[in-house]
Amino acid sequence: MDVFMKGLSKAKEGVVAAAEKTKQGVAEAAGKTKEGVLYVGSKTKEGVVHGVATVAEKTKEQVTNVGGAVVTGVTAVAQKTVEGAGSIAAATGFVKKDQLGKNEEGAPQEGILEDMPVDPDNEAYEMPSEEGYQDYEPEA
């Protein structure tokens, strides 16, 4: 019985440690998101679009440190934060509304985080759909 109880105690310690790591990862992701939003706020009209992409990228980098179902929630929060940063930029006159959601080359930025393969159960990952990809044929 002692062996059984000791095993359960060790398992509990492992769960607590994993929860603490997840909590730490979420806190880091939130900190990076805040950094990115402050970065966007300090940019001029020309830099705002690039700044919004930076927020998304920093958040995406930190999301990889967070495991399990938390990833889905962090990704949703990050996307809403990026959308909010863009709205703030438009409201303050840093950028025109028609410039939001495009990178410096004018290509749409939507789907940055949505296409990231995420499995809350950590069982399997699927690649994003290939609808947006084109076949590449090298020139002879």
Rank of each mutant, 00 (worst) to 15 (best):
N122S: 13
A107R: 11
I88H: 04
E13C: 12
V48Q: 00
S9P: 00
P138D: 11
E13R: 01
A30M: 13
G47D: 03
M127S: 11
M5P: 00
K43Q: 08
T22N: 01
V77P: 03
A56C: 08
V82W: 01
D135P: 13
D115P: 13
E13V: 07
A124T: 14
E20T: 13
A56L: 02
S129K: 05
A91D: 07
T81M: 08
A89I: 15
E126K: 14
E104W: 12
N103R: 11
T75A: 12
Q24A: 01
E126V: 03
K21A: 10
L113W: 03
L100A: 08
P128W: 01
F4S: 00
D98K: 11
L38A: 09
D115W: 11
G84E: 07
E61G: 02
E104L: 09
V77E: 01
A85N: 02
E57V: 10
A107G: 06
A27S: 14
S42A: 14
V15E: 00
K12W: 09
E110F: 07
G101A: 09
P128V: 04
E139I: 12
E139G: 11
A30K: 07
N65A: 03
G25F: 14
Q62V: 13
G86K: 10
Y133M: 13
E137L: 08
T33R: 01
A27G: 06
T72V: 14
G93L: 04
P117N: 13
T22F: 03
P120L: 04
D121A: 08
A27P: 00
E46M: 10
T72A: 07
E110H: 05
I88R: 02
A29C: 09
E83Q: 08
E83P: 07
G67S: 10
E104M: 04
V16R: 11
K45H: 08
T33L: 13
P108A: 12
K10Q: 10
T33V: 15
A140Y: 09
L38I: 05
N122W: 02
K45S: 06
D119G: 14
E105T: 12
P128Y: 12
V15M: 15
T72K: 07
L8K: 00
A76V: 11
E28S: 04
E20N: 11
G132K: 15
Y125D: 08
K96G: 02
V118C: 11
K34V: 12
P117W: 04
V74C: 11
V118K: 13
F94G: 05
A140C: 12
G36N: 15
T22Q: 00
V71L: 14
V118N: 06
A78Q: 01
A140W: 12
E114G: 13
G41W: 03
V66F: 14
V40L: 13
K97C: 13
I88F: 11
V82E: 03
E130C: 07
T59N: 02
F4M: 06
V74E: 02
T64I: 07
D135Y: 14
T92V: 07
E13H: 08
Q79F: 06
V82S: 06
D2P: 01
A140M: 08
G84A: 02
P117Q: 12
